[in-house]
Amino acid sequence: MNEVHFVWLQTLVDEFLDMPGPFQMLNPEILLMLGIGAIGTAVGLLAISVMNARMPGDNMNMQPRMRYLFALSFGGTGIGGIRYSSLIADTYGYLSFALLLLLPVGVSILIIKELVRADI
């Protein structure tokens, strides 16, 4: 009886266990496009924040919806950049990968230094 009732659960568990890993989920081009879109959007938000802070008066203070629209357009421009030049896209990718390589090493050095100096 149990076997009949819990087939769906077994299927669900099997599918969960067989999910593709984060390195197999999407193809590199789509990942790069999403990545550059996200970075572009973030840079857009930063640009608006700088603009709001540096420009005098309240006229420059955009409504949140407008801010996000502007930021998204920045992200869209980033994605457009990929279509225009794969060199830009590759540079983005390599720089991000370099950061991912250097960060754990730097963090480990920081932690080792502090661990040695820490009280026992």
Binding site: G35, A38, Y94
Partner: peptide, 15 residues
């Protein structure tokens, strides 16, 4: 946005 962007771009290179 920044962190996911960097992570996704780096995963693309790894992949």
């Amino acid at each position: 946005g920044m962190t996911f962007g960097i992570l996704l771009s780096a995963i693309a290179v790894i992949q």
